[in-house]
Nucleic acid binder design. Structure first.
Lengths: 361, 361
DNA sequence: CTGAAAGCGCTTACAG
DNA sequence: CTGAAAGCGCTTACAG
């Protein structure tokens, strides 16, 4: 005896007043075909927007579908298509804000499409990573997959998806793949904006705390930052570049090192907001006031950036937009989205209270 | 012509070196039946752990399933069962940290079960809320649904799910429903812990910023807080209770009001961490030092609580655990989880630097 | 432009 | 304890 059905039966029997099964049954393709006096194959053609249906017929069938509020069963369609209507969101970003925003954006893009989003955190360091992903994709016959950093940079995973014939879109800071399956985040532009902002405020001794060197974004942000400083005739001293780990603690430690030097930097550009907050802490420990003694600029514009004191100047990554555009790209690849051409996403500087003029010498 | 298949065909033709379709085809129930020399019905019985299979037969079939790494197709199973293996996570909590943790916990609970998680943000205030939820549940024939506050408190939604015969578990601060579909968060206990902590530090004039009165947790936290203060002989003056909105700004505004009174409170218990940070800001505006002049206690233990200065004393809500336990309860309802009895979740106080002894008079 | 037949990979009655 | 038949709600060839 199947326990699941026992449970269900219990519920059934406890709802004596429920409607009859007949009236609650949802309409199927057969109901539509019968009422429209066509074959179910023709109904199927209407569902799938086949051009080989006479306009009259299409109208008639559509009207009845609307009347009965008919929605094709994704499970049955999927079984026949040998493919599901599930989009996978595979992520490994440690920042919850990042994940929720990306997820929200993907859902924005998927809205009204009939596609659902199945979420899947992962650990690239795990021995079973690739096998787990293979299982997920194969078992669910995923419609496609959206990948955000850092798992979007995993070539092994990309190859797996190709071999499984599973469409994907990768969000990353460099063009790792064919353009149709990439969404590039232009991190060098964000780095440049931070550089111009600080240079324009008269800073000359500027430190940089990078993200982990295993992230492509780390190199892009640094490159954009260094190049833009060079444009203003300022060299980014390698001794003033420290590798952090995108964590509060690493931001604090790197800032301690930077402030121990003499002369010390008057401004620090942190690779993300989390590390920028660590820099706040280190500045306090060193008896320095932000921004009077030390200007700090972050990256991401996490919600916390506006809530700390002083509020944080930072480069805003439009993560939710990135999710929406990535989902749309995936849909366009598969021909279910006939919208406008590809959109771009670009970071923008948000100036708040943690950055100001360089202190007088 | 179906565009999706065009896209797929393009990909196919571009991968000339791919394995033959034959070798890549996943095994089906028919393959297993043929190799095990039984009917597919018997294989089905093994898959569904039916007791009506001879041990010998079961062993033989299991061995072949393992050998071919056979996994039953959830789509086909779902179609036959008239039910999917998708669990819905419906949420409307504005706090991303909360959402990610809950989601992570639900996934912990679902691990290895073959159930996938489909996420669905919602807006209870929308006119189409109930119809959207009906569409989601019916179209996907959801296995079940997990609800977190505040949407878990929506009786209309609960009734809808019942009428749709869709199992659910509601996480909430009070027992709104039958125990098997409830996970109670014991918010009154958390409120009491905050009260005892402040009372033990000698505070007598204590303010409280509540969450929105439309949240059940608001009343529970307040009740637990007030009762525990009463135990210590301290009355919670209604004039020192302000209704906030779980936002930074509301925490700031309420604290301004509290500090304008004379005498002013020496401690404030905020209904969540976000509002506690608003209280920090208001204290700074008023020239008060935390915790020397004013002790502040929050609720949630969001990651930011450990990252601000001074670090925030707060009541930790084990959100991830709540997600895991909720998922398990759902599975147990449906008989797919045969684990231990129901677990409880309880809040715990995390003492940090924002609370200390009451200032001398 | 339209349809009858067969099939996607499973399960539910119904027999035995 | 086991199986042959029919069906879940759709789509893919194949005809016409």
């Amino acid at each position: 005896v199947n326990e699941r059905n026992q449970a269900r039966a219990r519920r059934d029997s406890s709802r004596a007043g429920a409607q009859s099964d007949q009236s609650r049954r949802r309409p199927t393709i057969n109901d539509i075909a019968r009422l429209a006096e066509v074959s179910k194959k023709t109904v199927s053609r209407v569902i799938n927007e086949s051009p080989f249906v006479k306009e009259d017929t299409r109208q008639k069938v559509s009207a009845i579908m609307r009347e009965l509020a008919y929605e094709p069963d994704p499970q049955a369609r999927g079984l026949a298509f040998r493919r599901s209507f599930l989009v996978g969101f595979i992520y490994d970003n440690p920042n919850p804000q990042y994940v929720v925003n990306a997820q929200q954006g993907i859902l924005d893009g998927l809205k009204e499409s009939g596609l659902e989003l199945a979420v899947r955190p992962c650990d690239r360091a795990s021995d079973t990573f690739i096998e787990e992903m293979r299982g997920f994709v194969q078992r669910q016959k995923l419609f496609g997959v959206v990948l955000f950093p850092s798992v979007s940079e995993d070539e092994q995973l990309a190859e797996l998806l190709q071999s499984l014939d599973c469409p994907y879109v990768r969000v990353a800071s460099v063009e790792l793949d064919e353009p149709e399956s990439m969404l590039v985040t232009n991190d060098a532009v964000g780095g440049a904006q931070a550089a111009h902002h600080l240079a324009d405020h008269g800073h000359r001794r500027i430190g940089h705390i990078t993200g982990p060197l295993t992230f492509r974004s780390t190199h892009e942000r640094r490159r954009g930052f260094a190049d833009a400083l060079a444009d203003r005739g300022i060299a980014l001293d390698p001794a003033w570049v420290k590798e952090g780990g995108y964590t509060f603690e690493s931001g604090m430690a790197c800032t301690h090192e930077l402030l121990a030097q003499s002369p010390r930097p008057t401004a620090i550009f942190a690779g993300n907001d989390e590390m920028a907050l660590g820099a706040y802490q280190a500045a306090r420990d060193a008896g320095l006031k932000v921004p009077d003694d030390l200007s700090i600029v972050g990256y991401d514009d996490a919600p916390i950036a506006a809530r700390v004191w002083p509020s944080l100047t930072t480069v805003r990554l439009p993560i939710r937009d990135m999710g929406r555009v990535a989902a749309r790209k995936l849909m366009r690849q598969e021909g279910v989205e006939h919208g406008e051409a590809d959109e771009q996403v670009t970071p923008t500087l948000v100036v708040r209270a943690s950055s100001g003029p360089a202190p007088a010498e």
